[in-house]
């Protein structure tokens, strides 16, 4: 195996890693911003919920390759425009997040919502200050799945010439450099693990209340 490929191409790997990261993470952020209002809408009525959760869930079943090839036609963009990939991955993120955020919002105890209402929260302020914070732990769990999924899906973009570290797969395959392919796999894996760990840590830091309560009910 030609391991010498790695030291000779460190610059390329670093460049592709940066590209790969934002191609995966920008859609994660956009997907979150779109999913929160959709999930809120889904919790309003049972009809809205079944329509939204089913529709967004179906999006995930669209094969990624087909989506990436079709989006330029639908959006009128150049086939090599990275925006195509961002839109595609945003769609997958929404597909994963709407259901988990809607579930998280449903799991907020109704007694807490009633108490907040009785204190004089307006519905919007209650959503922002009470319901959404309490939905954070489940939302973060959904984000971690979407982040890892995005990290791997970015590589599919390599088929149409964009795809961050995925280019190492296509290039390595065409030129028969296994070390290049293995490097791609390992870096994608490490990136996914890092992002997953970061989300976990940030999620814990912003929900200090979720780590208390072992002593509940023992003191008066």
């Amino acid at each position: 195996m030609n391991w010498g490929w790695i030291p000779r191409n460190l610059g390329l790997v670093a460049e592709l890693t940066v590209e790969h990261s934002w191609l995966a993470l920008l859609p994660l952020l956009l997907g979150l911003l779109i999913s929160v209002p959709l999930a809120w809408l889904a919790t309003r009525t049972p009809l809205a919920r079944s329509v939204l959760v089913t529709a967004t869930g179906l999006l995930y079943t669209v094969p990624s390759l087909a989506l990436i090839v079709m989006l330029p036609l639908l959006l009128g963009l150049q086939i090599l425009d990275p925006l195509n990939l961002v839109v595609a991955l945003t769609i997958y993120t929404v597909a994963l997040l709407v259901r988990s955020i809607a579930d998280a919002l449903d799991a907020v105890p109704s007694v807490v919502v009633a108490a907040a209402t009785a204190m004089g929260y307006t519905p919007l302020r209650r959503f922002v200050a009470v319901e959404m914070p309490l939905a954070i732990p489940v939302t973060v769990a959904g984000l971690r799945v979407a982040a890892v999924s995005n990290m791997s899906l970015v590589t599919v973009g390599a088929i149409v010439g964009l795809g961050g570290l995925g280019l190492l797969f296509t290039d390595g395959f065409q030129r028969d450099i296994p070390a290049e392919i293995i490097t791609g796999i390992v870096v994608v894996l490490v990136l996914a693990l890092i992002v997953d760990a970061l989300l976990l840590v940030v999620g814990r830091l912003i929900t200090p209340w979720a780590r208390t309560g072992q002593a509940a009910g023992r003191q008066r």
Partner: peptide
């Protein structure tokens, strides 16, 4: 309604405290 409720104290059965505060 929300404005009016701020002027009336309300205590409920399971205290109904905000768990994240």
């Amino acid at each position: 309604a929300a404005r009016m409720r701020r002027g009336i104290g309300y205590v409920m059965q399971q205290a109904g405290l905000l768990p994240h505060r």
